[in-house]
Design a protein around this nucleic acid. Sequence first.
RNA 1: GGACCCGUAGCGUAGCGGAUAGCGCGACAGCCUCCGGAGCUGUAGGUCGUGAGUUCGAAUCUCACCGGGUCCA
Length: 665
Amino acid sequence: MYQRLTNRLREALAAHIREKYGVELAIVLERPPKIEMGEAASPVCFELAKKLKKAPRQIAQEIASTFGKVEGVARVEVAGGGYLNAYFDRAPFWTSARAERSNERRAASGQKIIVEHTSINPNKAAHIGHVRNAVLGDTMVRILRHAGNRVQIQNYIDNTGVQVADVVIGLLQMEQRTPTNVKRLAMEPRFDYYCWNLYAKATNFFSEDKERAARLRGATLKAIEEGRGEDAEAAQVVADAIVSCHLRTMARLNIHYDLLARESEILRLKFWDAAFEMLKESSVIQLATSGKMAGCWILPWKEDPKEVQEVKEIKDKIAEEEEENTQDKIIVRSNGTVTYVGKDIAYQLWKFGLLGKDFYYQMWANAPEGQTVWATTSDEGELNAPHFGEAASRVYNVIDARQGYLQDVVKEGLRRLGHEKAARNSIHFAYEIVALTPRCAAEMGYELSPEEAKKPYVEVSGRKGFGVKADDLLDKLEAATLAEVQQRHAEMSAEEQKKTAHAIAVGALRFFLLKFTRNAIIAFDFKDALSFEGETGPYCQYAVVRIRGIRRKGVEVGAAKIDVAVETAGHLLAGPEGNGLWELLLAAGSLDYAVEAAIATQEPAFVARYAFQLAQAFNLFYHKHHILSEADEQKRAFLLRLTELVEAQLVRALSLLGIESPEKM
RNA sequence: GGACCCGUAGCGUAGCGGAUAGCGCGACAGCCUCCGGAGCUGUAGGUCGUGAGUUCGAAUCUCACCGGGUCCA
């Protein structure tokens, strides 16, 4: 509602200025710091002052006095040194906000968007960092869908990489298991935990003898890539089993996928070969004939076309003298194997429908209960599979910030192949890592060096088996919330208690990961993550629970049925005495603003902050007004309706964050 | 050597060209005859890393420097 109204105001202001002064300006609107200053303000007159050579305040006065009526805006006033402050019509806002609430999310239309997230190496259990990735991606999907986009969720599975190879070597060589034995082991419920430890052991084993490591890895990797022998078979068993573990873990957090895109099919269906031909034909990559990179296919990096030839020559000379490589990126190594970037370029081309090839698809056999997940396959797929190959108009790749350079290379590859638009619509949805506070690391039995102990955070390492596993964290959260729920609600059935505790645990974790902006490093600590007070998910959920309590009681008392006259609403919201109620109404009507901002800035944190602010505004209201004992029948009815509006908006905001709103907690 | 990110109260974090820099945790002092205290109110706490520049206006933009992190080679 807020967004719709300010858009209207912005357009009207721009038109007015165009007409009156013949100046085309993008109108900036901001939210004034105090409600007394109105609901939307513009500093345009400061900007105009320069062009018109007049005092900003004078211009503001001219505009305010000649500016026509905008629907929903009561008046525009001049403030400060030349601000234009707009005051909304409160009663009509009330009416429209309530009407708008009944419209569910916009019907999906428009062009297809792909969001790739999670994409964990299928060789060990998921940890807290992976959860940040999945939660960010999943939340962005929910927000984009809410705004009316057709979104497809992909999870990329690197089932032929070195990480899987390491675990295969661990199972077959270090532990001397037979393929049958591996199969049996992979069916164990906590196989991902088993591999977590094994992977750490394998890493250790490799560091003892670098040469042996290179030999074993090389052979195993080759066998896996070619899909032959026991190694390949074991790799498939391991990767498939671990993927299923990850799907179950993520399902606990309300995270699901449409498609699992597997690297094995990128190889077997020759996606890379196709991309390789394109890159060679258009000379985007070149075969290096001399120097360190001889025999490699490289993508010359960041040649600035404007760079003067002399400067370039000097630079090259310096590079040569220092025996430094230029900043070219190797795509194919001299031994003929393709790097990650190469495969990524092929995959990205496919996402935009530019590769001229498609996968086959089959349902994932071991999906979490009640879900359908599709996976790529190189065998003949199922005929009724969704049309995953349809070109996307925009692609979000949720990948941590450390891979920024590689993502740039992928983008540049598309650009040089002539796909400028696809390159522009390739979004590296980057986020910073989740590290541990030194205290948390110490708690987990990790020995810190003196320097590490002084730092604000310690990085986790999958290789060393050091980190907080997602399922462990969820178990811990659920145990803590369950204890609390049991204490508060002895009357609930055990099943109900468990369900409630689960909802709160998920709310706590998802909110914790979403309240930070993407490029903040999160220093994880159990104390903070297990906190349910202040700026947390449970705080927001609790506001909903309070409202539901009032509603239940309201029905008993019979207060729910009375209609509220618009005049009553207008009267209660009017003037300075109405500011308190108006601020809550305004907050409730601003979800669209938060969603718009989240998409524009690519920050799901906007919606998290919105949910918290709305909950906060409600709690303030709750302590000021005793709704059900309000003597005036009309006023009581109004307070109840307002409360219901807040509930609807808060529940929706939380659902965009993937957080459920329990009935009681 | 090059590229990117981050320095905001004791701690964490938002704001990224506009009005008195918000919020949470922690500290201290209060609030249940009344819809659930996972709540509310108040107090203390800030040279927005440093210096210069652009601007009517800078935490926000530019440059240099200092400190921390990451990536490429």
